[in-house]
Amino acid sequence: MSGIVDFLFWVFAVAAVVTGWLVFRTDSMVRAAYWLMASFVAVGAILVTLDAQFLGLILILMMAGEMTIMAIFMVMYMMNPAGLNPMTMVHQHRTAAVAGAGAFVALALVGLLADFPDRPAPSGTDPTVDLGVELLGESMLVFESAGVALLAVMIGAIALVSKRGRYGDADEGSEEPILEKTE
């Protein structure tokens, strides 16, 4: 059994990396968003193989909506959203390469050198229950502040985007910025 689990782990791990790489190899905004989702789904599947069912599945559940919204916003704002004219998704190659390599090395070092605690969970515990108890117990303040933070996000976002609010047009009396260079 554990042979199959190991095999699946590697399959999903490779899938997560390859789909993550494909995000930058496509010209289409929709494909880029959904490759990223595929990458997340693979990570969710890895979590499931590691017996974190709830976390893995909830990741897959959430990413559908989030990545669809990302696809939609990218289609809305990016020129040539379907990539009908080929283009590159990667800019600042050198900085990106250095940052990527640096991050990989740092994380790999953490993985290899850190002293991970070896505390196998007693069988029969349900991580979801633990999570719930934690949320309602010691982490209650964190949880409620998350609510306030989310509200702030909502109101901020709506205030920024809504043009025809109840107080009239948001850009009333405003002027277009001058785009031409003045000599």
Binding site: N80, L84, N85, P86
Partner: peptide, 19 residues
């Protein structure tokens, strides 16, 4: 440049139609 009829980011007629 790619043989698909397009030009630059949004120009030309990629695959026979403009954007």
């Amino acid at each position: 440049p790619y043989g698909h009829g397009g030009k630059g980011m949004t120009g030309g007629t990629p695959f026979g139609r403009p954007l």
